[in-house]
């Protein structure tokens, strides 16, 4: 039984936690504010910015006009969504087989798959870079999609496996007793029950791929650069254009922030490989 807590205590908790939450969130809030300012206003003292300057959408337009922001945005979308669905295509049969037709070595295979995720990217940077160079894959969306698919494949398989595992065997047996063939069992019983798990797998992997900043920085130049690499070009001296940097940043993180909020719970499972639920 949850114990009733006095409102006074609750208010105190809210105040402390709210302050902490505000401080953590403040940098994001701040660039949101700056993105609606002119460059001149954006470098004034914080209080002046808040209370004595106007609001404008100019920075968003400027970012698009000067650097074809939309192209990089679409690169990010293509690469993250593409790698996720490509991964799903390969992972679903594998996870399904391991969850429902377990063999003696299934556990070893799973652990081995996970171990590939532990390989530090920098350890294989040179070979991948050279292979990409020789096959003309540097700075292409296809190449990057493939790499991100590979680095997230273990997570996708692992997540799907844990979700499939949770579907009680008795339900599948009931379907069999009810006369469902294997195909019908998959279509009418298994898939509908697995959809929530697949949805959160997709969400988490799009997030991870969107924010991936080792391969995207090292394997792209201009053409296929997703937002991670595009934003890095603000490193200097363009970073001093606060309003434009803010506008570009806000556009880059907004979609993921929204998706992330929806997938908080699944995030834990995905990121800990089921070790914490």
């Amino acid at each position: 039984m949850a114990r009733a807590v006095s409102n006074g205590k609750k208010i105190a908790n809210t105040a402390i936690a709210g302050t902490v939450g505000f401080l953590m969130f403040f940098p994001i809030l701040w660039i949101l504010i700056l993105s609606f300012k002119t460059e001149e206003d954006a470098i004034r003292a914080p209080l002046e910015i808040l209370f004595s300057s106007g609001w404008t959408m100019d920075s968003f337009a400027a970012v698009q006009a000067r650097s074809d922001y939309f192209k990089h945005f679409m690169n990010s979308v293509t690469i993250s969504v593409g790698s996720t669905f490509l991964g799903l295509l390969i992972a679903i049969p594998a996870a399904w087989a391991m969850a429902f037709v377990p063999a003696k070595r299934t556990k070893d295979v799973l652990m081995w798959m996970l171990s590939t995720k532990m390989l530090p990217p920098v350890g294989v940077l040179i070979p991948i870079y050279l292979i990409f160079r020789d096959f003309g894959l540097l700075d292409t969306r296809i190449g990057l999609t493939f790499v991100l698919m590979m680095i997230n494949l273990p997570i996708i398989i692992w997540m799907l496996y844990t979700y499939f595992k949770e579907i009680p065997g008795e339900i599948l047996e009931a379907a069999r007793m009810d006369g469902a063939s294997l195909r019908e069992e998959v279509i009418y019983v298994l898939t509908p029950m697995a959809i929530p798990g697949m949805a959160s797998t997709v969400l988490l992997n799009i997030i991870l791929a969107w924010n991936e900043a080792f391969w995207t920085l090292n394997l792209t130049a201009a053409k296929a650069a997703p937002l991670t690499a595009f934003i890095a070009s603000y490193s200097s001296p363009e970073g001093l254009f606060y309003a434009k940097l803010s506008a570009a940043s806000i556009m880059a993180i907004a979609p993921i922030l929204i998706m992330g909020w929806f997938s908080q719970k699944q995030l834990v499972r995905g990121l800990t490989f089921g070790a914490v639920k």
Binding site: G21, F25, P27, W30, N211, L227, A232, A252, I256
Partner: peptide, 17 residues
Amino acid sequence: IMVIAPFFVMPTVSGLI
């Protein structure tokens, strides 16, 4: 949500902010 938000910010953005 406010506490968790920074995790979703891409590394290059948070570095530059």
